[in-house]
Design a protein around this nucleic acid. Sequence first.
DNA 1: GATGAATGAGTTTTCATTCAT
DNA 2: AATGAATGAAAACTCATTCAT
Lengths: 217, 217, 217, 217
Amino acid sequence: MKELENILEQLEQDAKEEDLTPKQAQILQAAVEIFAEKGYASSSTSEIAARANVAEGTIFRHYKTKKDLLISIVTPFMTKFTLPFFATHFAKNVFSQPPEEFEELLRTLVKNRFHFAKENSPLLRIVLQEIAFHPELQEQFQGVFTKEVIPRFEEALNELKSKGKVVDFPNASMIRMIMSSIIGFLVTRFILVPELEWDDEEEIDRTIHFIMHGLSK
Amino acid sequence: MKELENILEQLEQDAKEEDLTPKQAQILQAAVEIFAEKGYASSSTSEIAARANVAEGTIFRHYKTKKDLLISIVTPFMTKFTLPFFATHFAKNVFSQPPEEFEELLRTLVKNRFHFAKENSPLLRIVLQEIAFHPELQEQFQGVFTKEVIPRFEEALNELKSKGKVVDFPNASMIRMIMSSIIGFLVTRFILVPELEWDDEEEIDRTIHFIMHGLSK
Amino acid sequence: MKELENILEQLEQDAKEEDLTPKQAQILQAAVEIFAEKGYASSSTSEIAARANVAEGTIFRHYKTKKDLLISIVTPFMTKFTLPFFATHFAKNVFSQPPEEFEELLRTLVKNRFHFAKENSPLLRIVLQEIAFHPELQEQFQGVFTKEVIPRFEEALNELKSKGKVVDFPNASMIRMIMSSIIGFLVTRFILVPELEWDDEEEIDRTIHFIMHGLSK
Amino acid sequence: MKELENILEQLEQDAKEEDLTPKQAQILQAAVEIFAEKGYASSSTSEIAARANVAEGTIFRHYKTKKDLLISIVTPFMTKFTLPFFATHFAKNVFSQPPEEFEELLRTLVKNRFHFAKENSPLLRIVLQEIAFHPELQEQFQGVFTKEVIPRFEEALNELKSKGKVVDFPNASMIRMIMSSIIGFLVTRFILVPELEWDDEEEIDRTIHFIMHGLSK
DNA sequence: GATGAATGAGTTTTCATTCAT
DNA sequence: AATGAATGAAAACTCATTCAT
């Protein structure tokens, strides 16, 4: 069972491998599109059924409620987006490296998430819009974020601080700045003005520059 | 007719000055609260009416549609939030000043918007959530932003670049970075974790530091 | 107090002579227009108020209910339209005359009602549409019609029959035929295709011809 | 799939043959009754639902709007009522026949439409009341009437005129007179005073007499 | 007399969900 | 598994009428 970056393609694959029935995959596809277009609350299950070429009842055979459908869509995205923030295949002690290493790591991370966002921008949109209103999603996110992302960030930042390579701000502030810059970039790139001609390589570099200099003493 | 920073207090004032009937002010109050809590699409006019102590029909006497109500709430906020980004009371040629001046300007700007956001955080929330789904709001924002904010930013950035004080990135990128940092801060401060004990002065300074260093060569 | 054929002009006159306040006249005017356009049930008092340049409450100061307003409009029209079907100024024994006289009488009658309909086509329209649904109107009409119109028709028809000038159908049938022809003409002329270029004189003559020959043996 | 004259019975048949669900047929039945009683604008979908023993939502599953329901009711009636005015099963050149033939044709036509009106008087009522207010209905009627009815009438009238059998009025006038007489009869018979004891055969003959003599020189 | 804000009962319409087939 | 007709609760919205000013 191959793992794919594009969650929608993953769906098709899952369908073939019978993790999902084909109808189920169609439903998820349609739901992602429609949720992204109009938001969860303004999307109707009947419209989703229509776009999925499926009877209205079929949705509820697979997902007990509409909310269930949302969660089934958002959960895998959230884990896949957040988890590999410092993915397991990075060297364990990547942060004991000199700061150029940190920059390099950051660059990899950003490129990484960049491609993921590119492949899944409707999902990114859904998460950003809906997380505010669904405690279930917040908890999920909270869990993954505080358990996986924060600790690794802190590890890295503490290391850098101890070497005097970065300014001595609270970790929370620094993480916020880094995340704001990255998410601000992704949102602008894929949601606000995706129609622009972007030089993505350059823009990533600029964002890295901004973060690295921003954190310097 | 005094102008108030807090848009909700402004409502009460407007009501007294008969720009608005008292019921109308109650409706707006209630709508802001409920829209912020559950989002526009999940808010029902009947709930708004109940919270406002008003008959449901009364809402529609003053606002032809529910969407109308949203727009009546968001429009004044958007202009007041965006317009004074570089308010007219700043010295006209503030940007011909040395870069310390820019930093000072930025600090004023951030404090400025910080207080506005503090006073109006439910409105900030509403705008961020709803702008994605309502073309009317997008246009309004677009208009005010490209006409008022962008040109002044560009003026300042060009000046700084010509003096070699900042890195030579496209203006659009730089504006995005600055805005991401500010908005990321405001959102974290007032929406994501408002319950935290924040040292606001310090945090503003850190954010300024991050932006100024981030833009340096 | 002059009596006018055009009921709307009559309104203005009444207003001047203080039978009606000016606002009241405006209300009636507006109501006639709107009732004729969309029908009683689909007309809203607020729209009437708007078109009359009057506050919503003002309507109800003069007419206790919306239905009241309808009746105030329809009643004078109905009496004026039906009553003079064989007006009092016709010679009492007009029907003891030879049949050429009947034809002449019919012609006068039709021209008469023709001009009245021309002046008051919106009212004609309102009556035709609404009489079906309002027992009050039906009673009124019934009263005037069976008391004033039928007896005179019968008188005339009996006379003609006794002279062998017309076919011997039941009076009810004959009245129906005559009325269908006249109303069919008026409705076509003023309601169905008023935009056509009509040669009214000719058309009236044709209608008379049709009725007279139709009733002949 | 038999074709029935009574549109309501047709509904039941359609229901059995699964053109319509049973609930759908109940809805149409109830709607016809209620529209006829109180008029379209004064009928509420909730009352229709109640009379049809159906949830209100069920109406909207089958008919997108209340107007849609009206149109679904009126359209088949209008075609069935108007189309066979000179039905295709009449001999093609029926009008090249001597005038007795025309009278016979007219008689068939009237009896024809008489029975149809008898079976469907509520529908007749609805059409007469509502056509004035719904452009959609007007267009439909216009279409069918000018395409099917008028040309055949004209053909017949021209033939009769050329033979000097009838008076030389414009066709439009003659058609109006004929139609007024027929519709005036049907309306009186089935809508205005259906409770009367009518001798229908006789009354049809009288109406034919009236028309034929009316059109004579 | 005139106003127009306010009402609340009623209207059309939507929609997630159920269930018999 | 899949369908789609049916539901009923709730949504947005309308409107005749009242009433304080």
